[in-house]
Design a protein around this nucleic acid. Sequence first.
RNA 1: GCCAAAGUAGCUCAGGGGUAGAGCAACUCACUCGUAAUGAGUAGGUCAGGGGUUCAAUUCCCCUCUUUGGCUCCA
Length: 595
Amino acid sequence: MKIIYKDGTVADCPAEEVNHVLRHSTAHLMAQAIQRLYPEADFAYGPATEKGFYYDVDLGDRKLTDEDLLAIEAEMKKITKEHLPVRPFILPRDEAVKLMHERHAKYKEEHIGDLAPDAEISFYQQGDYIDMCVGPHVTYTNAIKAFKITQQGGAYWKNDSRNKMLTRINGVAFASQAELEQYEKEQEEARARDHRKIGKEMGLFMSDDLVGKGLPMFLPNGYTIWQELEDYIKGKERKLGYQHVMTPCVGSVNLYITSGHWAHYRKNMFPPMEVEGESFVLRPMNCPHHMMIYASRPHSYRELPIRIAEVAHDFRFESSGTLKGIERGRHFCQNDSHIFVTPDQIEQEVKQVVGLINDVYKDFGITDYRCVLSLRDPNDTEKYYQDDEMWNTAESALRSVLQDLKIDFTEEIGEAAFYGPKLDVNVKPAVGSEYTLSTCQLDFCLPMKFDLKYIDAEGKEQTPVVIHRAILGSLDRFMAYIIEETKGKFPVWLAPLQVKVLPVSEKNNEYAAKVTEALEKVNVRVVLDDRNEKVGYKIREAQQVDRAPYMLILGAKEEEAGTVNVRSRDTGEQVSMGLEEFVAKVTKEIQEKAH
RNA sequence: GCCAAAGUAGCUCAGGGGUAGAGCAACUCACUCGUAAUGAGUAGGUCAGGGGUUCAAUUCCCCUCUUUGGCUCCA
């Protein structure tokens, strides 16, 4: 594919750039179509995205309907067929401003003002459409072959909620129709494994208007998984010397004033409750409670590290637009811990935390994640606790552990907690944008605010350092992740229904009941489907809805021989074996938490 | 919170100013069945809620709630 640079050079597009250029050019193509249909349209930014492009446009009071989007798409197709040449030109700044001003492009005009004084200002023209742009672009409009407008939404000018909300029109674009179709197929598959959809199908959780939005409730099947996860992580933690505690979901406002959360995050907390002249809030996090547990008695350096852990209920007032099933609600259970260490234990302890994350990810087969070292923004004096030396020490401590462990990570400015830098492990859901699964945060700040101490080897008082960490993040969110990763086909140890017993006819119900009982006796989660239906019908439901790892087909043959016919959910394979043999197999898999 | 779209049976969805529709699920009956849907029948609804227009509203208009997508936010 030929592309044209802003200086007019035409060249072959490097293979790895093809999609990006194509998508960026498709954004221009769409803008041209919009301009033809709505001449009053004023364009802001219109970049390429991961799979396509968008353009933010100010349409005044006009609202676009789905039909309007189809009309825009049709106009785009028309323009590609017009075979318009795409040509760049460069203007000095004053002429550039003049051109944009004449064309009533007020966002572009403002954009010029944001550019570096010596920046070269280039434009691309196709037909009567001119866009300020650095390029490169395709050389003719008909190079764009496979695209689709996917949706519209609002987006703030310069991504700032104080600015005007513009109409963002999103689309996807590919080099070929086949790739576009492939993409659409993948999207459909992603929607099918959305945890909200599977959660409904399998009866894992629900929500109800009367209970309140963002407040999901776990149903028996979902809570079974939840409890398995809780037992699993607590077991891991116990082996590493964590001590579990239980603290209340409500705390006095004074507690959060002391911690600094009141000043920094009050707007994300449910408003206070006044009783007997005191104010209380639903807690949004557990650090202050755990600080108070540490502070309740004196500590020697010999005791450190002290690892206080809790699977704790938290409540955060998330804005309504961000709620998403059990991935992000207003109530969740954090797999939280606060580790109190001496400064020279930081490195070893962070390494232990990272080791635990690795261990857990291995157990769940999680491989598709991204590590981020979240740093403060030194210019943001409002959000971050002000102490440069503290920040520098904490940030470089975390960085050096990551480097030591040879972990790939990116650094992101302005992503730190107000009290310290974080190592975040981020993953992507089936639908929607990336979120943090695990986190490990270094904190020199809260121990000071709570005046925490330990006695060092010289008998002097010292301030400990706190490591905040969450491995499964919140159990709710982790469950959402596991649902999507497995498409509801959980490993046996997690599956809400582990074995489904399917008699071939009613004649075999009695034997099937006996088999069911034998499994119940060894605590296997088993259900007998003795409905008067054909075995194929029962299999379909057990496979597609229950997603039971094992189905036991029991007919005359099995009854006579005292065996079970085992059908595997994942392979569809059928194997006959003795009941005892099956019991041993399934209990072993549960015990070993086999994938 | 903001910008859009949507809300009809338990689920997935069709419909449309004049008695509310289908498939699946549920229930009943028959069949007694061998690895992803046996057949017949029955029941199931304040068409999210409230207000308005109209002889008549589930349908048109307004408000509210919830859901979905995008933006902002995410300790």
